[in-house]
Nucleic acid binder design. Sequence first.
DNA 1: TAGACGTAGA
DNA 2: TCTACGTCTA
Lengths: 164, 164
Amino acid sequence: GMQVNSQKRIGSVPGIKVGDKIQFKAALSVIGLHFGIMSGIDYMYKGNKEVATSIVSSEGNDYGDRFINDVMIYCGQGGNMRSKDHKAIKDQKLVGGNLALANSIKEKTPVRVIRGERRLDNRGKDYVYDGLYRVEKYWEERGPQGNILFKFKLRRTCQPYVDF
Amino acid sequence: GMQVNSQKRIGSVPGIKVGDKIQFKAALSVIGLHFGIMSGIDYMYKGNKEVATSIVSSEGNDYGDRFINDVMIYCGQGGNMRSKDHKAIKDQKLVGGNLALANSIKEKTPVRVIRGERRLDNRGKDYVYDGLYRVEKYWEERGPQGNILFKFKLRRTCQPYVDF
DNA sequence: TAGACGTAGA
DNA sequence: TCTACGTCTA
């Protein structure tokens, strides 16, 4: 069953299984999977470095994430990707969630991955917990608009619950 | 107690009393007070004319609504009032919610008024049901930015529940 | 597709 | 204050 986990943590969330489906983005924070009603990357401090705790890859955006078998390519945040923001396109920066994902490589901390899938009636999305991944590397890339984007390569692990 | 009223209606909502406090804008639609997660004016068709069913007046915006005793001055929608939208300021138009409020004058239909009050911790707002009002008149006015705004004068009524 | 009186966190 | 992979209706 779903329970309330108000504590942010690295790794699995007790009571949440791979494949669990959540009806609203906002509900992810109620069960402790992902905090941040609109953010794609959630993170916390491990020592004096921020590391990623969870990311959401949502359908229907311009981020161009890809899932190939156990590998995922995830686009960083910033740069005004969302077409609904009528703002100037900018280069992404290695700060906030992007820095946290980059730090996760050396720290070897697992990242919870959640996929946002459009519902059939096209009203809102279902959020499906996809399990734990490790960040293997990242690089810069120019997006369709010419600005610099960060791309993160993650690999799915079958790592059991560990309290970091 | 709060119940689910998925049906949009004119007038009071059974089970909802003046002064009832709702924690989130999104919850207003669950109890049937106001549909539209981000809209200020909700409306429906009465015959072939749209009339307003409910309005939300929320603190901390640039709409400049006023409450004086039983009278309320409510600003129409449109024109890119919200400072967070970095869009060109425009004149408001007598369409959608604005037209519905104007139609409510001749139709003499009551409008539910909800006040959005900032919480003390400044995180989100509480939405308080303020009862039924009648729209008495409306006029055009130039806002601080020089664009045309609609202003609606509403008066609080003690009208009991009537199913229109 | 665009517009709409949202929310939480850094 | 600003950013952030939201959500619904017309």
